[in-house]
Design a protein around this nucleic acid. Structure first.
Length: 587
RNA sequence: GGUCCCAUAGCUCAGCUGGAUAGAGCAACUGAUUUCUAAUCAGUAGGUCUCAGGUUCGAAUCCUGAUGGGAUCACCA
């Protein structure tokens, strides 16, 4: 639509001898109730035209109609210039733009971006919060890829620390040598079970100590279990063979479990980082900062940065005993990632409870003069809440990722069976389809909302399969495929004598796809894609309902509608793919 | 208390680089299937865009303040 903008700039120049830039022309979609496809707001031009908005619109409209063959008509309502673009233009768009192989395919932009997401703890299974994180990260990676970036999907696994020692210790004490094989339990669930057991026993000990007069604080510190866990962590850091052995074994179980869940979620990674390898990093950066005066040392030997001028606090970056804190490690890991890949941008998909941490981290790196720090971005997303409140792994009040996936598949199965459209499918095909639909519903549900917003998830109210949902869009795709399977496409570009409004609207929506990808990539927001694909599916269903494809008036029209259908299916499929959602051929 | 995020229909959400009478879905009600998949389509009803100021020809959108909700301000990660 740039040609309209350019022509408008010229029109203003010709008519009113005023120079404006393309940015001054606000072009928008014409509202449904009016005639036309694009609308120019004429109010901004009245200053130079010295005429009423209506008259200004009429004059510009007249100019455009005379100058551009694509403009077939116009009308002005209350200062809004509504322009009708000729049917020929839209049909050309379909054949010369939308159906071409490189439609909405972005050329490599030469930029490299890392998307870090998932970042699980290896002491418990994944829950709904992780699911949101995983789907978001994966989708953003797909969107950036589509927008022309070279993308590295990274996962920084939190595989060490006191929380893992807790699971290990509880297993040692009460595990009786249980393994995933012996219990037939998924490895991450087995380990998570012992994490919960630890917490239960720990709480018991705290109560006992409180009963003999200790304060809550003292009891938490003095409980034998926590002391044992701390000892175990020290042994781990000292490289004690037995502890390392156990750690490797139990982490192995967890990774196998995570692998299964990731596979079901359909997410993947190009690069894994492990905190057991990175937790000592960052100390050299502390030295660097001390040398350059960005950091300062307190009397006790601890190292700090003063961010009060930036409206933040003083922040510790190294303990007095010269051991690392969280942010030390993150500084080091950021450097490591940059050294590994030299990416232009790096996106951290992490919950919004860490907003402050990342603000500080990025600021520190900038102050240290890391040029790449400007490319760091925290993609912060809201918590997933249950009606009962926050999810807490330790207390077992979580929606488990694996359970949730099974539940979605079961619901998909029930809905599908009730409709009875795929009775000829093999068992394997059915299982596959239930998975596709169930995950489509779940993924769409989680991705259509703005990442920033917190999400309320009611496990008792199942995710919908009708209306503004993943299955609605999947259904539209299957429906198109069903029609295409019954027809032969000649591949000859035919122009119908008349273009119905539903056909034109569908083409208009299709042409927007590249712009939508760009927007989604700029905002790191899969919701942009999700809502667009929904609009497209709706536009198709409306067209489908109003017009027969196979029984079209004549072969020209039929071929045109078939091409329109092929294009719609393709864009739906590509859009959904950016959300990590599969579209079935039948459902 | 400081800082950050959020607030739109009964519910879940779009719209936010300022533009027309604020849009979808769910739930409720009505209608469409001898015709390409009705997981669909068409319609009815549902709104003080939290509130109060400000900027503007024009504000759900930008600014200020308030209210409500959430997060965070650890020598935990």
């Amino acid at each position: 639509m740039n040609f309209i903008i350019d022509a408008t700039v010229k029109a203003v120049k010709q008519l009113y001898q005023a120079d404006i830039t393309p940015a001054d022309v606000s072009l928008q979609e014409t509202r449904k109730e009016f005639e036309g496809q694009v609308t120019i707001v004429t109010f901004p031009f009245t200053k130079v035209s010295r005429k009423s908005p209506e008259q200004t619109g009429a004059e510009i409209g007249e100019y455009l109609k005379n100058q551009l063959k694509e403009v077939s008509a116009f009308n002005v309502i209350k200062g809004f210039l509504n322009i009708s673009i000729s049917n020929t233009y839209w049909v050309e768009q379909l054949y010369q733009v939308i159906t071409t192989d490189d439609f909405a395919i972005f050329k490599p932009n030469g930029k490299k971006v890392m998307v870090e997401y998932s970042s699980p703890n290896t002491n418990k299974p994944l829950h709904l919060g992780h699911v949101r994180n995983n789907l978001l990260g994966y989708s953003v990676a797909k969107i950036l890829d589509a927008a022309g970036y070279e993308v590295i999907k990274a996962n920084l696994v939190n595989d060490r620390g006191i929380h893992i020692c807790k699971s290990m210790l509880a297993w040692q004490k009460w595990g009786n040598g249980e393994t995933p094989e012996s219990t037939k339990e998924k490895g991450d669930h087995l380990v998570g079970k012992y994490y919960v057991i630890f917490d239960k026993e720990y709480k018991k000990q705290i109560e006992e100590l409180k009963a003999i007069g200790q304060t809550e604080e003292e009891a938490k510190k003095n409980a034998p279990l926590i002391k044992e866990a701390q000892e175990m962590l020290l042994k781990w850091e000292a490289g004690d063979d037995a502890v390392i052995d156990l750690w490797q074994t139990m982490n192995g179980w967890v990774y196998e479990g995570f692998g299964e869940t990731y596979k079901k979620l359909g997410v993947a990674f190009d690069k894994f980082y492990y905190e057991s390898n990175t937790y000592l990093l960052g100390k050299d950066i502390v030295e660097e900062g001390l040398a350059s005066g960005v950091f300062f040392k307190k009397d006790d030997g601890s190292v700090w940065i003063d961010l009060t001028e930036d409206g933040l606090d003083q922040k510790l970056v190294l303990r007095a005993d010269s051991t690392s804190v969280y942010i030390t490690q993150d500084m080091g890991t950021a450097q490591l990632k940059y050294d590994d890949f030299g990416m232009d941008e790096s996106i951290y998909v992490v919950g919004n409870e860490q907003d402050y941490h990342f603000k500080v981290l990025f600021l520190i790196l900038q102050k240290l003069g890391k040029t790449w720090a400007r490319g760091l971005f925290h993609l912060s997303y809201g918590m997933v809440d249950l009606p009962s409140g926050k999810m807490k792994s330790r207390e077992g009040t979580v929606v488990d990722a694996d359970d949730l996936i099974v539940e979605m598949e079961t619901t998909a199965k029930q809905v599908t069976e009730a409709l009875g459209k795929i009775n000829d499918f093999s068992e394997e095909e059915k299982t596959q389809l239930y998975h596709t639909i169930g995950m489509g519903a779940l993924k769409y549900f989680l991705l259509k909302v703005d990442p920033k917003k917190r999400l309320l998830f009611d496990p008792n109210e199942s995710v919908d399969f009708q209306g503004h949902t993943g299955p609605f869009i999947q259904y539209t795709h299957a429906r198109i495929k069903s029609v295409l399977n019954r027809a032969t496409i000649t591949g000859v570009d035919t122009e119908p004598s008349e273009l119905a409004p539903e056909e034109r609207d569908l083409i208009v929506t299709l042409t927007q796809f590249p712009e939508i990808i760009t927007q989604a990539a700029i905002a790191y927001n899969p919701g942009t894609i999700a809502n667009y694909v929904y609009e497209l599916a709706k536009a198709y269903n409306k067209f489908y309902h109003e017009h027969s494809i196979l029984q079209a008036e004549d072969e020209l029209v039929k071929q045109f509608r078939l091409q329109l259908s092929v294009a719609s299916a393709k864009v739906i499929s590509r859009g959904m793919n950016m959300l990590g959602i599969e579209v079935p051929e039948r459902m």
